[in-house]
């Protein structure tokens, strides 16, 4: 599956991608957040008071502004905001990427099977996709949350994945439909290859680039949904996330008193989703040569 041709295409795509100003900016922003997420593992090791959840500065009992020991200040119980921000970056990556990954896996599988099989199976899978697609995912999440109380972070990931696969499966399905009657698929059939083999050996490598593209857009959506849930108080209480931080600002009544506490998580959410969006747009240009500027082609 990940063969040499794939790597070659990936390499060529990367070259076009990195020439694109959107792609370049996106990659740089992502890199910064990546460093932040990695840093979150080391910060609590410096001093236990930098633990984002339990680390409390013994000298501080109230929210304070930036200082030398707490570069971005502390929250109302004396926890370090920078440490929380770094932890939030990690959580955003985990939630965004895994939710996107699962929705892509489901969407790609369903799309390939529906497109390849056709007939009744295709029709029923696509109707199911239609139904899920028109459901307002945030409202559903809220209803579920109010029924079951606060969620574990992985349940949130799972629900986002379940709600978000249909759009992917539609695109993959139409791609599969156009591949299905290509002579190299038919040649494989004539050789006696099974349906499973045709789907995974011949169709999948050809739809994967598109799946990756959709994954970047899904990441954006997943991060936003998680932030919204946490802000509304349905997040995982044992996890610091940017949405959770916003909720704490709100709940503790510091909304208009502590800009050093309010602005960083808000800015991070916007920047990270923007970065993934830019990434997706740049990838779109790699995959669709018609969008590419003249002069780069050939």
């Amino acid at each position: 599956m990940l063969n040499k041709y794939f790597m070659l295409r990936f390499y060529k795509g990367w070259q076009i991608f990195i020439q694109n100003p959107l792609g370049k900016t996106g990659v740089i922003i992502l890199g910064v957040f990546m460093v932040m997420a990695i840093a979150s593992f080391f910060v609590p090791l410096i001093d236990p008071m930098y633990d984002p959840m339990t680390g409390i500065d013994p000298d501080i009992k109230l929210s304070t502004g930036p200082s030398l020991t707490h570069w971005l200040g502390t929250d109302n119980v004396g926890r370090d905001i920078l440490a929380q921000l770094l932890e939030g970056a990690k959580v955003a990556f985990v939630v965004g990427l895994s939710a996107a990954f699962f929705s892509i896996v489901i969407g790609t599988l369903v799309g390939m099977i529906a497109g390849y099989a056709g007939g009744l199976l295709d029709a029923s899978l696509m109707r199911l996709a239609d139904i899920i697609m028109v459901l307002p995912s945030l409202v559903i999440l809220l209803i579920l949350a109010s029924l079951f109380g606060q969620f574990n972070i992985w349940i949130i990931v799972f629900i986002i994945a379940i709600m978000r696969w249909p759009a992917v499966s539609r695109v993959i399905r139409s791609q599969t439909l156009s591949l299905k009657h290509r002579p190299f698929i038919e040649a494989s059939r004539v050789a006696g290859a099974s349906h499973v083999r045709i789907i995974f050996r011949h169709i999948m490598p050809n739809v994967l680039p598109l799946a990756f593209l959709y994954m970047t857009f899904r990441v954006t959506a997943a991060i936003l949904v998680e932030a919204a849930l946490s802000f509304l108080g349905f997040g995982d209480p044992s996890q610091v996330s940017w949405g959770m931080m916003l909720q704490w600002v709100w709940k503790s009544g510091h909304m208009f008193q502590a800009p050093y506490w309010l602005i960083p998580p808000g800015l991070c959410i916007s920047l990270l989703t923007l970065a993934f969006y830019m990434l997706g747009r740049a990838m779109d240009e790699v995959l669709d040569p018609r969008l590419r500027k003249e002069g780069q082609s050939g």
Partner: peptide, 30 residues
């Protein structure tokens, strides 16, 4: 026992498979 050669050689080979993998496939599936 029955095989086919298609019209368009640009469409009848999977771009993701090497030449060996392409020719190997009938032997493998059989």
């Amino acid at each position: 026992r029955v095989q086919m050669i298609f019209q368009d050689p640009y469409q009848s080979l999977n771009p993701h498979l090497s030449i060996a993998e392409t020719v190997l496939e009938p032997l493998m599936v059989q």
